[in-house]
């Protein structure tokens, strides 16, 4: 479930990045890298788990599934927070800078 949620987040972020490219200045690339990196790593985790549990892997207990879904959503939220902090620090559109520095008339 965590892998699925993260993979969907990676796909959505990549589609948005592609749609906005090349002018896109929202630093969406960082989201794509984070979610794809984690998705690949969780894929490996899933393969090892499948090798151990076989078909049972696809029928998790509802409580486990809920916990994994909750974790997946938390991971997506953490990724978004990291991206947001990065965006505000880099400030590619100069919005933060403009808000902080008042121009004299």
């Amino acid at each position: 479930m965590t892998l699925l949620i993260c993979a969907f987040a990676a796909i959505i972020a990549t589609v948005k990045w592609y749609k906005d490219a090349p002018e896109g200045n929202m630093k969406l690339g960082i989201l794509c890298w984070m979610y794809w990196g984690a998705s690949i790593m969780w894929l490996v985790d899933a393969i090892f788990e499948y090798a151990e549990l076989k078909a049972e892997y696809f029928t998790p207990a509802p409580a486990d599934m809920l916990n994994d879904a909750f974790l997946g959503l938390a991971v997506v939220a953490l990724g978004l927070i990291i991206w947001l902090v990065w965006l505000l620090i880099k400030d590619p559109r100069g919005v933060v800078k403009a808000a902080l520095i008042r121009k004299k008339a």
Binding site: G37, M41, A74
Partner: peptide
């Protein structure tokens, strides 16, 4: 940099999973 981005991003989110 593509490789380091994938590795750092993935490791950060997986570290969170381990904290979880």
């Amino acid at each position: 940099k593509w490789l380091t981005n994938l590795l750092w991003g993935g490791s950060a989110l997986l570290a969170f999973e381990h904290v979880w």
